[in-house]
């Protein structure tokens, strides 16, 4: 839809950003938390490619290490959402009947709650540890996954291969795990790809509000929120972290969308 060129550009850009961030401990030119108060905030230069912040810390190094944490949160929180959403949706869709109705009403009810507020509440109630951040974000992002998986499972439940599996005497659990869920993998993969950017965006929001990643750790969201405080004096402190986050999200969204297009065009029976 957006052209092969854009997709491969997005793929390469994303791979580069990911690789560079993962290798941060080896690639970063400076220690991300090493202060140099005499230096202070300096605009980009040959020694510090992206400049330094008001404590004289190298922004490039902080950006690489922050990206590592942002991506880690993106992956872990998505995994939480995946686990919750798939098991909830698959159970509801497979069991059907009243259980299904009840389980999906729970999803509807949670949808009605202003969800950013929900995360804020969770963070305030349960403290601000990193593990909790994964769970809180995952706990919000699983709803759509549950709906998608449920619809898929319900459609597949009627199909002939499930009937055949039942005839040869497989248990419900075997049918669900070996026959139904593998057939839902397409939409699950696509939606997972699209969940990662929304999770990263949510983490950035939370860190921006001061509820997410706490110092001395740093993520892109946390860097942006620090950059905002001095955006008029030292604009580069806001500009580069924001650019890194936006570029990564853009690439992920582009790829997820392309994946969805391929899936919809290649699966004739896909009831997405």
């Amino acid at each position: 839809m957006t052209g092969k060129l854009a997709t491969s550009a997005a793929l390469w850009l994303l791979a580069t950003i990911t690789a560079v961030c993962l290798l941060a401990p080896w690639l970063a030119p400076y220690d991300p938390s090493a202060q140099n108060l005499l230096l202070g905030a300096q605009p980009p230069s040959l020694q510090h490619w992206l400049g330094t912040d008001s404590f004289g810390r190298d922004l490039l190094s902080r950006l690489l290490h922050g990206g590592r944490l942002s991506m880690l949160i993106g992956l872990c929180a998505t995994a939480v959402a995946l686990l919750l959403g798939v098991s909830w949706g698959a159970t509801a869709g497979f069991v059907g009947g009243r259980t299904d109705a009840l389980m999906m009403r729970v999803v509807d009810a949670l949808y009605a709650l202003p969800f950013v507020m929900f995360v804020v509440l969770l963070m305030v109630v349960f403290g601000r540890s990193l593990a909790l951040l994964f769970i809180a974000i995952g706990a919000v992002e699983w709803l759509t996954m549950a709906r998608i998986v449920r619809a898929q499972v319900r459609a597949l439940k009627q199909s002939e291969f499930v009937e055949a599996a039942r005839c040869i005497g497989l248990s419900n659990r075997q049918i669900l795990w070996r026959h139904v869920l593998p057939n839902c993998s397409g939409p699950i993969i696509v939606y997972t790809t699209l969940t990662i950017p929304s999770v990263m965006l949510l983490e950035a929001f939370l860190s921006f509000l001061g509820l997410g990643v706490q110092p001395p750790q740093s993520s892109w969201g946390a860097l942006i929120s620090q950059g905002v405080e001095t955006m008029e004096e030292y604009p580069w402190l806001l500009l580069y972290p924001a650019a890194a986050l936006t570029t990564t999200l853009l690439c992920l969204n582009l790829l997820g969308d392309q994946l969805r297009d391929w899936l919809e065009n290649s699966s004739p029976g896909g009831a997405a």
């Binding site: 965006l201 924001a242 992920l252 969204n253």
Partner: peptide, 11 residues
């Protein structure tokens, strides 16, 4: 549209 989806609102 992609820019709209990917741009953080605070930014």
């Amino acid at each position: 549209a992609f820019a709209g989806i990917s741009l953080p609102s605070f930014w």
